[in-house]
């Protein structure tokens, strides 16, 4: 048999933002922008004030308690909100358990104190994420949580950008979920 003449088919593959090019944190920030998410990078000491600033002019804020020391929700944020407060809230603040660099996605764990409804009902979702929790790719993100799903019966949402629909003839952001997503990324100095 004659060796089949090959043409290099990898030519068209765009690997400009692949793992070898930039760090996961940088990629996470770039990809987040691409999917319509603003990222604010701050030090641990500044998280609380950043959140407060972000909620400064918000009429109603709900939140789920944040798991880090020295990081707290603004005073205006209501935790364990009522259904009415959830519906009325303009901003919801929650923690994210990880960030996925390849996709600009965040992983939200459904907790008993309401991360799921708080991140879902308000028009804007503000997620707080530690830099150490940014992973390069989807396989790592899911792989890290395997035991949580199996042993703890965890539920999580891989959220990428605001909610959206194209069902009404063209793309509209803000369908049943938030119209806007903001990530506060902190802890670079801890690494």
């Amino acid at each position: 048999m004659w060796p089949r003449p090959e043409i290099d088919s990898s030519e068209g593959i765009d690997v400009s933002d692949s793992a070898s090019q930039t760090s996961p944190i940088e990629r996470f920030c770039t990809r987040s922008q691409t999917v319509g998410v603003d990222v604010t990078r701050v030090s641990r000491a500044d998280v609380s004030s950043t959140l407060a600033d972000l909620c400064d002019r918000e009429p109603s804020v709900v939140g789920a308690p944040l798991p880090w020391t020295d990081v707290s929700l603004p005073d205006s944020a209501t935790t364990m909100p009522t259904p009415a407060e959830l519906e009325a809230a303009s901003t919801g603040i929650t923690a994210a358990v990880s960030g996925i660099a390849d996709y600009g996605s965040i992983l939200l764990r459904s907790t008993a104190d309401g991360v799921e409804p708080v991140s879902l009902f308000p028009d804007r979702h503000v997620a707080v994420l530690h830099e150490a929790d940014v992973v390069p790719d989807m396989a790592t993100a899911i792989g890290e949580q395997g035991e949580a799903f199996r042993e703890e019966g965890a539920s999580m949402i891989v959220a990428t950008g605001p909610s959206a629909t194209a069902d009404m003839g063209e793309l509209v952001t803000g369908a049943h979920g938030p119209k806007e997503v903001h990530v506060v990324l902190f802890g670079g100095e801890d690494r």
Binding site: S105, A112, F149, S155, V158, T160, G161
Partner: peptide, 18 residues
């Protein structure tokens, strides 16, 4: 590349009922 939400639910979910 990915849709806005990929829910990975292990019901009954831990989230409080609204």
């Amino acid at each position: 590349d990915i849709t806005s939400y990929v829910s990975l639910l292990t019901p009954p979910v831990e989230s409080p009922v609204v």
